[in-house]
Amino acid sequence: MEELDDDVTILMAEDDDGHALLVKERFQNTGVCNPFIRFKNGTDIWAFLSGAASPCIETGKGYLLLLDIRMPGLDGVEVLRRVKSDPRLKSIPVIMLTTTDDPAEISVCYDLGCNNYLTKPVEFEKFAEVIRRLGLFLVIVKVSKLKA
């Protein structure tokens, strides 16, 4: 399994604890040991990303975003939108993790610029595939360090 860039911190927004745990387990099973920060809703992750909360996003570090769509407060789509609109944040790769497979919803997310879209429940193989692909993606593109 490819390692993600050591610097990359994985940020996940997921309101359901069970889902969060599952995802985390999956990451670990694929050999990804990067730092993992879990947020319970969109508002919190946005606060982190926008720098309103502390601790918050740090310059010089790479991040990966995992967003659930259906969340109280700011939903995943909104966070995605904001991230991709922010010049500082828009280079952060985003994976949408969600239960919905509504094609309309999916296309909206891709339109907004998400890098990948995974439907839950996440099959192990699929998940691994995505991670692998992501690793490739990261190798090719190289997650740019967050600029100040």
Partner: peptide, 8 residues
């Protein structure tokens, strides 16, 4: 949503 948990 709960289904995911159950399955997972």
């Amino acid at each position: 949503s709960p289904l995911v948990n159950i399955q997972g």
